[in-house]
Design a protein around this nucleic acid. Structure first.
Lengths: 133, 133
DNA sequence: CTTTGTGCAAAGGCTTTGCATGCTT
DNA sequence: AAGCATGCAAAGCCTTTGCACAAAG
């Protein structure tokens, strides 16, 4: 079922490169629209299509903003969470996850299986706190 | 600033009652559209407006589904999280939160303040696991 | 009677999709 | 040359908003 010649169709195009690079450089998580604004000569639909693909391939992480928008970010490998400054949008990857044990415990207690958690942490970073003060 | 006679404008209407009751009875978190379907004689806009208000007043909790839809639920008081069956949608309130200490620690480590976390846990409940098996 | 709530339909914002053309391989 | 990728515009969803009418207090 996973062996039918599996053509890993993914052509190298300028737009694709541009999108990924822009994402890789940015310290914040960007939405398709933001990305589209920052780029030139890349259609919005193309941005959406590529982000979707990158996410499927696991090359970027998705972050759901409080208002429902979906943002994307190039991340390190392994399970981790995001500590996001609600002012400047800067993202800090947190690899120290406290939820593993917790969710295992909850699984037992409530007879649930295959528990997944998707947590975003929103706060104010030091820099922004100073600006405001 | 919080003392200008503060009219707690909130009239009692049949629709309002119907929406809240439907929500209170349901074991799952419902979206405005789902709620609108289940009810009769209540406009969709009215459902949206009331849910929004209820959420602002803290009378219902909001749950963001993986696909971005916003669902609502009448919950117990105090900080807690939701363990949601991805099959039947049943929601279990989890009052035992493991993230408090963790986020405090992260705040210190990364110089962030006012960290808030919004975590939803998705899994498969025992009943549904059996059905599938 | 005054003010808030409701319904309907229009409008908005984000995302996806159809189709013809262009570019990668 | 063959097929995926792109662009543009249209269409889809979910949600919000404007306005006239109905209802609550």
């Amino acid at each position: 079922m996973t062996s039918t010649t599996d053509k890993q169709t993914t052509r190298q195009t300028g737009q694709r490169r541009a999108i990924f690079q822009a994402l890789a450089k940015d310290k914040t998580a960007l939405t398709a629209q933001e990305l589209h604004q920052h780029l030139t000569g890349v259609g919005l639909a193309t941005v959406y299509r590529n982000l979707q693909r990158l996410a499927e391939q696991g090359k970027v992480d998705t972050i759901r903003r409080p208002n429902g928008e979906l943002a994307f970010r190039v991340c390190g490998v392994g399970h981790h969470h995001h500590l996001i400054c609600r002012s400047c949008g800067r993202v800090v990857e947190v690899h120290d996850c406290a939820l593993e044990d917790w969710s295992r415990k909850l699984a037992t207690e409530h007879d649930f299986s295959a528990i997944e958690h998707q947590t975003e942490l929103f706060g104010t970073c030091g820099a922004c706190a100073n600006k405001t003060a």
